[in-house]
């Protein structure tokens, strides 16, 4: 049941990101909304619960994106695994650490994506434009990321305590 709930929330986020968000001018420099969700899965849930959802969401994004197939499956899986490890080291109740972990998540995602791009296209070069977009993503992650984490956690906690 938890798996389907997470799949549902992740799919809603994906639809919002691919249909609604492009209407906003800042959408090109906004970070991947599934990153805080994967961080939430990796940090607050067991590997058995988090990884299958991360793989499934990676599969959805890979299917819709212009990326090489498997890029997002790999990225989200590694993101969930690394977040599981990082969350064990920091206090997940602290707002500052929540902000930090989202920023780390956004950076890890971009590193993995660019690694994939560089493997496929050896001529690829970093530019000021790319660094500007990443800086903008980090800015948005700092401003909104922790709230997403808190929101996901609260909603799930609320649903878990609701009598059937």
């Amino acid at each position: 049941m938890t798996f389907f709930y997470h799949i549902f929330v992740g799919s809603c986020l994906f639809i919002f990101q691919s249909v609604i968000l492009p209407y906003f001018t800042f959408s090109d420099s906004f970070y991947d909304l599934l990153v805080p969700f994967i961080i939430y899965l990796g940090s607050y849930h067991s590997v058995r619960e988090g990884i299958p959802v991360a793989i499934f969401l990676g599969f959805i994004v890979d299917s819709f994106s212009g990326s090489y197939f498997g890029v997002y499956i790999t990225t989200y899986t590694w993101l969930a695994i690394s977040m599981r490890w990082i969350s064990a080291l920091i206090d997940m109740q602290n707002f500052g650490f929540l902000t930090l972990i989202v920023v780390i998540g956004v950076v890890i995602e971009n590193i993995l994506l660019f690694l994939a791009i560089m493997i496929a296209n050896p001529e690829f070069q970093f530019s000021v434009f790319i660094l500007g977009v990443i800086a903008s993503q980090i800015f948005w992650a700092i401003c909104t990321g922790p709230f997403f984490l808190i929101f996901f956690n609260k909603i799930f906690g609320f649903l878990k305590t609701e009598p059937a």
Binding site: F14, I15, Q17, S18, V19, P22, D28, S29, F30, D32, L33, L34, V61, F64, S65, G66, S67, Y72, L113, F114, I117, V133, Q137
Partner: peptide
């Protein structure tokens, strides 16, 4: 066009 690429680095539409 019904949907856009969720990524900033890849450009595709549905």
């Amino acid at each position: 066009v019904t949907g856009r690429d969720p990524s900033s680095w890849f450009k595709a539409v549905i």
